[in-house]
């Protein structure tokens, strides 16, 4: 405790808003570098794709890490957002803002209805129920329309024509805003109430916390984030063949679950990192190795091994690894300064 000086840089970096702005700046810079031809565009495309999954995963982080509820229905809700985007923008020719509001409304309504029915049960039963539901939604969507495709050539947002680059920034800004809202919520009475509920339902109730209210809230928020993810996917990737795409299948729900666990279920940044590990590594590196191109099933195996390792040795995920590492570095530095 010799030098407990005020460190303005460290204090600033602990501010969630500063973290988000830094993240946004770095991601925007990568896109600009790619426009300048310094980075391959496929890398930036993979980055954008990964950020879409990050939107979905941070919503799930609130559900799993704070409320302690495990849902396997994420993929179904992604589908809702994707189809809402398709119908509003492509079929009815309405602007993006309308698509966004429709996605919001649909996901809130569906989230409340599903949550109200299913949140009376807990644990593995909730996971199975939501899994079944997601399959129902997927099959329903497939019957309604097997391929959805959006033509963005005359879609504008705030007067700007949306192209590849604009879609990337749309994804980035959405992720940043949602991240900000979520970290505010986590550091407020709501976040604490959810954590209380996860630790002890009886203590939470005795302290005046309504289990149904906060479970439903967490469930609806994660549903909304997933649906927004689906909407962004349609804006960024623009087409999906529901029957062959894995986006709306269990594997997406499991990958999101895996990303949240690997990253650290209580940390939105850890979760984002987890998404980059699972989706980023897959699309940026593993898909370049011939062995994995030939045997895509092994990619899932890599994910599986990672999850096992993290759960066994670092149950707090990468957020925990990072915290332990910085603590270790700081201790070393202090020792060095004292000597």
């Amino acid at each position: 405790m010799t030098t407990q000086k005020k460190n303005p840089v460290r204090d600033l970096m602990r501010n969630p808003l500063a973290q988000i702005l830094l993240f946004t700046a770095v991601m925007a810079l990568l896109q600009i570098l790619s426009s300048a031809g310094l980075i391959s565009s496929s890398f930036v495309y993979a980055l954008g794709n990964t950020m879409i999954y990050a939107v979905i995963a941070i919503g799930f982080c609130l559900l799993l890490g704070y409320s302690g509820l495990a849902s396997l229905g994420t993929a179904g809700f992604i589908g809702l957002g994707a189809y809402a985007a398709f119908y509003v923008i492509q079929e009815f020719g309405l602007p993006y803002t309308v698509a966004f509001l429709v996605t919001l409304a649909v996901s809130i309504v569906i989230g409340v209805v599903v949550g109200f029915i299913s949140l009376r049960i807990e644990g593995i039963y909730l996971a199975i129920l939501t899994l079944g539901l997601a399959e129902i939604i997927r099959n329903l969507l497939m019957v309604i329309k097997s391929t959805v495709k959006i033509d963005l050539s005359n879609v504008k947002l705030f007067g700007i024509q949306i192209g590849d680059r604009e879609a990337y920034f749309l994804v980035l800004v959405t992720l940043a805003v949602l991240m900000w809202l979520l970290s505010n919520l986590i550091n407020s009475p709501t976040g604490r109430a959810m954590l209380a509920m996860k630790n002890s339902t009886s203590a939470a109730q005795a302290m005046g916390i309504s289990l149904m209210k906060y479970r439903l809230l967490a469930f609806v928020i994660s549903t909304v984030f997933a649906a927004i993810g689906g909407l962004l996917y349609m804006m960024f990737v623009r087409n999906m063949t529901t029957a062959t795409s894995t986006l709306l299948t269990l594997s997406t729900s499991l990958n999101i679950l895996g990303a949240v666990i690997i990253g650290g279920a209580k940390s939105p940044w850890g979760t984002t990192f987890g998404v980059f590990i699972i989706y980023g590594i897959q699309s940026m590196f593993l898909s370049k190795i011939p062995f994995f191109v030939k045997n895509p099933a092994f990619i899932t195996m890599v994910t599986g091994v990672l999850i096992i390792l993290v759960v066994m040795f670092f149950p707090g995920g990468f957020a925990q690894i990072f915290a332990q590492f910085t603590g270790w570095v700081r201790a070393k530095l202090r020792k060095g300064a004292a000597a």
């Binding site: 604490r192 954590l195 209380a196 996860k198 630790n199 002890s200 009886s202 203590a203 005795a206």
Partner: peptide, 8 residues
């Protein structure tokens, strides 16, 4: 049986 929120 003590029900303190251990994560807080």
């Amino acid at each position: 049986n003590v029900e303190v929120i251990r994560e807080l």
